[in-house]
């Protein structure tokens, strides 16, 4: 039995189809990264799995229990950290954890012991007696995750755990999640960032407009979209077509190139990047094309989306379905 099983999940908000038949599974003691742009349906999926929303159609189980027919038993097994820190600002960190423990029906003694333990673990012992209102964004997020771990959940849901954090807090959060994962906590995390999914998740499910468009490990996905990206910036827009042609011959890859006229760049998948930069500079120079910049970079979510859907990841963020 998988920790999470989802079949044909559908959800509408008025005229917007937020989910159009999502299927996914999370194996026990693994991390699934649900990757997609704003409005793709990531949060809607998490909200259905955590019993906050009811699906219009489809089936979802967590730890073998149906989320629609037995929500209370599901709630006893999950931990949820949403996009917005779900903390009562008037309480102290300790009280927040104790409060959640009591609502999981631990005894007062157990709830307090667990609160102390989690504060220590999340480096919040010193701040534990202070009111949450004075916490920094990173501290709130840590407390938030600590609160979702009070009951030692079977499945942990993290909805965009690093969105809105500064780069340093983001790295700290990654370390923290990696530690939890190392202990065997089954986790479903949503993210807009490919690098985040790659670092934290065993399997990745890419969703867009409420449907799954790809799934696999990070390596499988990157293989599917053709590895690293070669990005060439040229001097004049009228040289773009010729540049694209030359690059296509040189890289000989399956995926098509992407031409950005405004930035005067051509981006193309390059599976074999050894010595490619000097080669390309020489090639274009011989053709009399003025080269301003040549960059080899890791594929981003945008590249994945361009390849899989033909549109950019941030292009359709106005769907409003990401609720």
């Amino acid at each position: 039995m998988n920790a999470v099983e989802v079949e044909g999940l559908e959800k509408r908000f008025g005229d917007t189809e937020a989910l159009r038949g999502v299927d996914l599974t999370v194996e026990k003691a693994t991390v699934l990264g649900l990757l997609g742009p704003n409005g793709a349906g990531k949060t809607t999926t998490v909200r259905i799995l955590t019993t906050l929303l009811k699906a219009d159609a489809g089936r979802a189980t967590v730890d073998g229990i149906d989320v629609a027919s037995d929500p209370r038993r599901v709630r006893a097994r999950i931990g949820l950290t949403g996009q917005y820190a779900a903390v009562d600002e008037r309480l102290t960190g300790f009280e927040s954890l104790e409060h959640v423990g009591r609502l999981f029906h631990l005894s007062t003694r157990e709830a307090r012991a667990r609160a102390t333990e989690l504060l220590e673990r999340f480096d919040l012992t010193d701040a534990g007696g202070r009111v949450v209102k004075g916490y920094s964004g990173g501290m709130r997020r840590r407390l938030d995750i600590a609160m979702s771990l009070v009951s030692r959940p079977t499945v942990l849901f993290l909805d965009e755990p690093t969105t809105g954090l500064d780069p340093r807090s983001r790295l700290g959060m990654w370390d923290l999640i990696e530690e939890l994962v190392a202990e065997g906590t089954t986790t479903l995390l949503t993210t807009q960032y490919l690098d985040e999914a790659e670092r934290l998740a065993d399997d990745i499910v890419v969703i867009d407009h409420g449907t799954v468009i790809a799934k696999g490990t990070a390596d499988e996905l990157k293989g599917q979209i053709g590895g690293d990206r070669l990005e060439v910036t040229v001097g004049r827009p009228d040289e773009l077509a010729r540049t694209a042609e030359l690059l296509r011959d040189r890289c000989a890859v399956t995926g098509a190139e992407h031409v950005d006229v405004e930035a005067r760049t051509v981006t193309i998948a390059a599976s074999e990047t050894h010595k490619i930069v000097p080669d390309v500079v020489r090639l274009l120079d011989d053709a009399g094309i003025e080269v301003l910049d040549v960059v080899v970079r890791r594929p981003t979510l945008d590249d994945v989306f361009l390849q899989l859907t033909g549109h950019a990841a941030d292009g359709d963020a106005d769907e409003g379905g990401d609720r």
Binding site: L52, R75, L80, G82, Y84, A86, V87, D88, L103, F104
Partner: peptide
């Protein structure tokens, strides 16, 4: 506030 989502996801 976000607290309501947390409360709704608890077995209370």
């Amino acid at each position: 506030k976000g607290i309501i989502d947390r409360l709704r996801s608890l077995p209370m």
